[in-house]
Nucleic acid binder design. Sequence first.
DNA 1: TTGCTCCTCACGTCACGTGAGGTGGC
DNA 2: TTGCTCCTCACGTCACGTGAGGTGGC
Lengths: 146, 146
Amino acid sequence: VSATKPRALRIGELAEMTSTTPRTIRYYEEIGLLPGAVDRVQGKHRNYTDADVERVKEIVRLRDLLGLSLEGLSKLLEAEAARAELRREYHSTEDPGIRRTILEQATEHIATQLGLVRSRQRELEQLEGELVERRRTVRRRLAELD
Amino acid sequence: VSATKPRALRIGELAEMTSTTPRTIRYYEEIGLLPGAVDRVQGKHRNYTDADVERVKEIVRLRDLLGLSLEGLSKLLEAEAARAELRREYHSTEDPGIRRTILEQATEHIATQLGLVRSRQRELEQLEGELVERRRTVRRRLAELD
DNA sequence: TTGCTCCTCACGTCACGTGAGGTGGC
DNA sequence: TTGCTCCTCACGTCACGTGAGGTGGC
C-alpha cells in the first residue's frame, strides 16, 4: 500500500556495509548484542533495516577503536539503550526536575566514552611522536650524506 | 667480576612491567615473537633483561593501538629486526651509497607505521567529534531549563 | 529452472586464561 | 624449612572462520 516501501537488507548486505561477515552478525545476535532480525521465522532469511546498519557500525567502531571485549561493549550499549528509554521519558514529560536528571545522566555517559577515546588518543600521540623523532634522525643523516 | 651486575628479571616482573601476564610472555616465546630467555635450561626459570622489557612494551603497544594480529605484528617486527641488522651494517661501512640505501629503507618503514597510526587517529577524531556534538546538544538543553 | 545467497549445525583457530601437579631460589 | 614464584602439560574460552549439507527467493 505504501509507495516507498523501505528496502529490507539481507545479512550479506548488512555485513558488507559494516565491513564484517554474516558469521559475525549471527554471532552478535547469538550473544544478544544485536536484537534478532524482525518478523523472522526460524530457518528463514534475516531481514535488516538501516537502524541495524547503524547499530553494527557503532559496535564495530567501539570494538576496534576502544579495544573493548564484547562483554564490556555490551554493558556500554545497555547503558545507551537505557539512555534511549530515558529519551522517550524525556519527551513525554514537562517536569524540569525529571528532564534535568535525564540530561545529567546523558552527560555522564558521554563523559565516560570521551574519556576512553582521549586516553587512546594520548597513547597514539606518544607513539606518533616517537616515530616522528626517529624519522627526523634518519633525515638528518641523509642530509649529512650530501 | 663486575661491580654493577645487571639485574636479571623474572617472568612475573617482566609481565608486570609490561601490563601482561606470564602466560602471555610464554605464549609469545612459543610462537616466536619473543626470543627465548637467554642461557636457559629446559624446566628452569626464564631470565630477562631491560631489552626484553622494551621489546614486549613495543609488542603490546602495536597490538593494542594498531589492532594488528600477532602474525601481522610478527612481520612488522621482522622488518624491524632487518632494520637493526642494517644499522649494524651501516656503522661498519663508510660507503655513502650503501648508507643512503639503508637510510631510505628506514624511512619507508617508519612511513608505514606512521600511516597506520594516523589512520587510527583520524577514526578516533571522528568518534570524538560525534561525542562532543552530542554533549553540546545535551548542554544546550540543560541551559534551556534555566 | 538455474545461481546465488541464505540457513543450521558443528568443528577449527587465534590469543590467551586457568587449574593440576610438581620443582626452584631468596 | 617455609612461601612464594616459577615450571610444564593440557583443557577452557572468547570471537569469530570454515566447511558440510540443505533450503529459499529474485
